[in-house]
Nucleic acid binder design. Structure first.
Length: 507
RNA sequence: GGGUUUGUAGCUCAGCGGUAGAGCAGGCGGCUGUUAACCGUCAGGUCGUAGGUUCAACCCCUACCGGGCCCGCCA
């Protein structure tokens, strides 16, 4: 058994392929299959001359997603997907698939249809690419921390209390006692950092907020490093080095997948610049348009985007009219079909631009009227990050909008040493971290202020009683970084089976 | 939870007062080392559901149900 991924090693050799038919094109003497085996996609040629009439008749009956084995020669051919072609000398059919509901290009389907067929949708090329990038990111995360002296530890998934005391949790039953699915492993990671120095957790996280946006899932995977003797500056250095490592490894090893996704990799290569670090207070000024970044004004950039959307509609409308005029004048059927398809596509694009035209003025208003001291909304993050090329770190946040465990800025208790990493191009927050409060008195006071039970948190407070040290950490949302790296407009494609507010638990 | 938009063939959409169209997928025929192949042909629909307006409703109105997008809550 030989995998498509390794075809370059088998050039000129006869191999055995086992996989599925992704697509088929037929002629009198040749059948061209696009086959897949999980490691890649490849064209297989079934020729009447080679196979003989009887086998060729069998080959004609192959449907999309039929499972089969092909024995054949691997031939280099630059024109093909993956650069190689399999020329069959014999085939063995495992199972003829019945009519397959998903098209070869899944973008020709609607969101709902694909989500309901997720178990099959995962076979599509784009999904294959996303899952492979996801895997590369996961491995690069482990690799980064393992190479840097971190120990992977696991926090419990069942907990007796809300970690931050704020968000909605899924309740379950633990032998008659209420238990909650974990929304963060951080507090436990802090305890483990006091035992092991540098640790990270990597596990599922659950939030029962009724959030219906492209950046939310009810169940997602989070990576939470925690380091003893790290202050906020060291934390930010680590975040930057970490993100650079992950992105560069994906760029190096998953070129084919990023290309399949049509990702503009130059945008990702921007991570090799220094990440701008600005305080919350500075970020507010940038957002409001009162302060510029490299000559770019956040509000002006939005106005330009708005004007561009309006112009695009004018241009597309003109093209559509021209096409319609041409069709009225009389054209051949093929040409008419082509023009109709083009116009339908343009009409969809116009709808997207119209959506922007409705949204951008709201975003501008929200940015200009932003009240210092509040948390950034989704659109605010988009507006803010549009003026930066690299991910930007926003630090020193107002105390009242951040969690109780964040360390107060020395001499200014209105601010805490938290940091958010915002990805460019509107992908928003992917990392949230902070230096943790290590002072017993302050932490105890804040637990009370947040109406949390001192009893429940005594074990956590203990960490400040027995050899308290400055320490920091952060949380990375796996699906959010996958979304950014792949350039996807929604988180739902970044995880094999989404669990999201408003959707069924099937599939 | 709020706003907005949408529901027409298996899929993606067009039609928007006078009793349904295209492309893809499927069947058949043709043609080609093809690249989302192409050409011809056949088949495929009580136009989300329930009321209402009208001589006439896929089209207008109301309600309900189901989607999309944006916002909120948050990673």
């Amino acid at each position: 058994m030989h995998y498509i991924e390794d075809f370059s090693k088998y050039e000129g050799q006869e191999i055995t392929f086992k996989g599925w038919v992704a697509n088929k094109r037929e002629s009198k003497t040749n059948i061209f299959l696009v086959v897949r085996d999980g490691t890649g996609f490849c064209q297989a040629v079934l020729s009447l001359d080679v196979l003989g009439e009887e086998t060729f008749e069998v080959a004609k009956s192959l449907t999309r997603e039929t499972s089969l084995e092909i024995v054949g020669n691997v031939v280099k051919d630059e024109r093909q997907i993956g650069g190689y072609e399999l020329q069959a000398s014999s085939i063995k059919v495992h199972h003829i698939a019945k009519e397959y509901p998903i098209k070869y290009l899944e973008q020709e389907h609607g969101v709902k249809f694909l989500a309901d067929h997720r178990h099959l949708w995962l076979r599509s090329r784009r999904q294959w690419a996303i899952m492979r990038v996801r895997n590369e990111i996961i491995m690069s995360i482990h690799d980064f921390f393992q190479q840097n002296g971190f120990v992977q530890t696991d926090a419990p998934l069942l907990t007796g209390n809300a970690c931050e005391g704020t968000t909605d949790l899924f309740e379950t039953d633990f032998f008659g006692v209420p238990a909650y699915l974990s929304q963060s492993g951080q507090l436990y990671a802090e305890a483990m950092a006091m035992a092991l120095g540098k640790v990270y957790t990597f596990g599922p996280t659950f939030r029962s907020e009724k959030s219906d946006t492209p950046r939310h899932l009810s169940e997602f995977w989070m990576i939470e490093p925690e380091m003893a003797f790290y202050d906020l500056d060291m934390d930010m250095d680590l975040i930057e080095a970490f993100i650079k490592h992950v992105i560069n490894r994906v760029l190096k090893n998953r070129k084919v997948e990023l290309d399949t996704l049509g990702r503009d990799v130059s945008k990702l290569e921007n991570v090799n610049q220094d990440f701008p670090r600005i305080t919350y207070t500075e970020a507010v000024k940038v957002l409001q348009g009162k302060s510029e970044v490299n000559g770019r004004n956040a509000i002006t950039v939005q106005e330009e985007d708005l004007a561009a959307a309006k112009q695009a509609i004018v241009d597309l409308t003109a093209t559509i009219e021209a096409n319609e005029k041409e069709m009225k004048a009389g054209v051949k059927k093929g040409k008419r079909n082509y023009l109709t398809a083009q116009n339908d596509k343009f009409k969809q694009e116009i709808k997207v631009h119209e959506e922007s035209i409705r949204n951008i003025p709201k975003w501008i208003a929200s940015a200009q009227n932003f009240k210092d001291g509040e948390d950034f909304g989704g659109s605010d993050e988009t507006v803010l990050t549009r003026v930066f090329d690299a991910p930007v770190m926003v630090y020193n946040w107002p105390t009242k909008i951040k969690a109780f465990y964040m360390k107060e800025v020395e001499g200014d208790p209105n601010f805490v040493k938290g940091v958010d990493l915002l990805a460019p191009d509107g992908y928003g927050e992917i990392v949230g971290g902070s230096e943790r409060e290590s002072d017993l008195e302050i932490l105890s006071r804040k637990i009370k202020e947040h109406d949390l039970s001192l009893d429940d948190f005594q074990w956590y407070v203990d960490l400040r009683i027995f050899g308290s040290v400055p320490h920091s950490g952060f949380g990375l949302g796996l699906e959010r970084i996958v979304r950014w790296v792949c350039g996807l407009n929604h988180l739902r494609e970044t995880i094999p089976f989404q669990r999201r507010y408003g959707r069924k638990l099937v599939p």
